[in-house]
Amino acid sequence: MLLLLLILFQVIESPQYKRVGGSVNQLRPALYAAVYINKGSTSVGSLSSIGLFRRYEGDTAWVNLRPNTITPGMGFTSFGDRHQLYLAGGNGLHRSTDEGRTWRVLTGWRTKEVLSVALDPADSLRLYISTPFGVYRSTDGGSTWIEKMRGFKTWFVRRVILDRVNRNMLYATGEDALYRSMDGAETWKQLSIGVPGIKWVMQHPADSNLLLVGTEDHGVRYSTDRGETWKQAAGLDTSAVYTLASTRDGSALYAAGFQTGVWRSMDKGATWSQVWKAPDFDAIYSVCVNPRNPEHLMAGTNGSGVSESFDNGRLWHDAGLPNAIVRQVVMYP
């Protein structure tokens, strides 16, 4: 067979539509996992067990939500009782309005691979994506996209997020720096973090002035003035940090990355201590905290699927998706 050969898919389970609370539009809480690649595959074209997966809270079984494309990220939003689920993937940005039963690709070939999506909670038509070729914005619900890179010095953008308070403010992790836009992505300003290789950016859920970034070689840095000035976090200062997470109230923050295990900060990111060494995992790409149970943590790993802890991260166990490189885990709603 030639080279990369044909693409192998696993048998897809039909999504089940379990609803709670009596309302047909009330989503049952679930953990979603973005599986980038599965290490069980031996060919770059083998796509078995990749895409978006869902596990309902209280269940153990994962359901593949179908688009079998490499999947680095996802996004959720709701307008009234209508939920929208987004998948950022190799085939583009996908949207489902029926809980993952059907999908529509929103982007064309010009935007290429989509790495992350940022959604405006007040405007369903306004979307932002980051790609290896820049940031794109849509103001018509994903029908058309315009590149928005004025002010960037490089074009690779790993992640873009929207400020929780100011809908015109965005943050984007570029190859060389963190960038901020004050005008809905029209223009961008490079922020002076002091180190390149920004991997993740998070806005503190209880303090919108507090930004935290994970970096390639300098652990966590944080800013208390929305990015104007930055400080090095203590305790986690020489590692590659790929992800940051928070409890709903921001009382506990978590960080993980390359050979770091899981770290926690109880002082809004100023100091960190390790809570789990994770000796069996070479990297953790994503951590999320159950919004209804702050002691329940989930971690997406580099080739070992999902792990979870029910005691603030002290003890962890395998939660499924063997061999999967899980780039993002999100509990929604």
């Binding site: 693409i7 192998l8 898919f9 897809i12």
Partner: peptide, 9 residues
């Protein structure tokens, strides 16, 4: 065969 797909296919 749902185990097959992709651009080659």
């Amino acid at each position: 065969d749902e185990a097959i797909g992709g651009m080659f296919y």
